[in-house]
Design a protein around this nucleic acid. Structure first.
Lengths: 188, 188
DNA sequence: CGTTTTGCGATACGATCGGATTGTAAAGAA
DNA sequence: TTCTTTACAATCCGATCGTATCGCAAAACG
């Protein structure tokens, strides 16, 4: 065998390039040639690591979810689990999370045609839902509330705010204020 | 001059076909050939009414917004202006509004690359925001609230719920229940 | 009636797509 | 060393894309 290479590392680098293109120019700008050129490698090499374009897209989605989860964990690290901090961490406030949100949104609508991508988004949604419900339950100021239902509400609200921020309809500060307004009302 | 034709009517028919394809198979499946074939006309005729593909897409967005506004008005017609009814009308509950929501979502991300489309979405958002604020203000059970802020909250919440319903994460009934939960809390 | 204008079908063009094929250099295995 | 396998580059293929162009029939206008 020739050069010993870390296959997973190559795939990760290609997927990162793919996501950068998807965030910058849209998912429809993602092609084998574009990805290869942007990654500084040949089309053949891309094909060597991904049998088809769909496989490449699926891999990019899979590793994106890992990245988002890491981002949320990092955004709330050090402190005790705090409901507000998690919600704020879900907003696209810095360039990095903005890129992630853009890519996620670009991929979401592929889920309608690709069951595997749909499954990734569904489990991601369920994880987040469960985590939020647990945080609601743990918050002493929110005792007496239906945690699952409030988690659904918070998830929808934060998702809508994230879209509004992403599209420039609201600023990040406004979104945080609205989250605080809602939480204040929850607490009584 | 030959056959007297209603240009606007032709364009409307083409735009409708385009939106149907976008909803069924995604925006990337929209091509001149596909639209022409689905509309039962020739590629040349499509070109005759739209100089470029972008012009066609922009027209489709413009008329979509009119359609959505008509839908919301129709969904709340006859009755006095009712905040809850408007919010529910924004959810993709039937096949028609589901298609509209799908198309709108497919187009939203084009707004990043097309300032004209971005402007259409922005004004649509502002209209909706103003309308909701007026309804909040009019609702006697909600007196004493910051109408503009509550409208933002409601818009984000409903938007997030609409996405969740569209993606199959929540059912329409669940979404309505969550809206009611929020409204009940608003009312005190 | 003839001229001009318009609606629109047909087709050609160059670019780009995803994917398949082929060639080749490098490096362990024999 | 020789053989085999792997990493990857280069190129080709057929399909499809958006757009441009050509041609012609129909109809209002002189």
């Amino acid at each position: 065998m020739p050069k010993v290479v870390d296959h997973e590392e190559r795939r990760r680098r290609i997927a990162e390039t793919l996501r950068r293109i998807a965030a910058d120019e849209g998912l429809e700008a993602v092609s084998l040639g574009q990805v290869a050129a942007a990654a500084g490698i040949s089309k053949g090499q891309v094909q060597h690591y991904f049998p088809t374009k769909d496989a490449m897209l699926r891999y990019a989605v899979r590793t994106l979810r890992d990245q988002v989860e890491r981002q949320v964990v990092a955004g709330t690290a050090g402190a005790p689990p705090d409901l507000r901090a998690v919600l704020v961490a879900l907003l696209p406030l810095d360039a990095e999370s903005r890129t992630e949100a853009l890519v996620a949104n670009a991929f979401v609508w592929r889920a309608f045609k690709d069951d595997e991508i749909a499954a990734w988004f569904r489990t991601g949604y369920e994880h987040l839902r469960a985590a939020l419900a647990a945080l609601v339950e743990a918050e002493h100021s929110l005792s007496g509330l239906d945690a699952a239902r409030e988690a659904d509400l918070l998830l929808a609200l934060t998702g809508g705010l994230a879209d509004a921020v992403l599209l420039g309809h609201r600023s990040g500060e406004e979104a945080i204020e609205l989250i605080d307004l809602h939480l204040r009302r929850l607490a009584g």
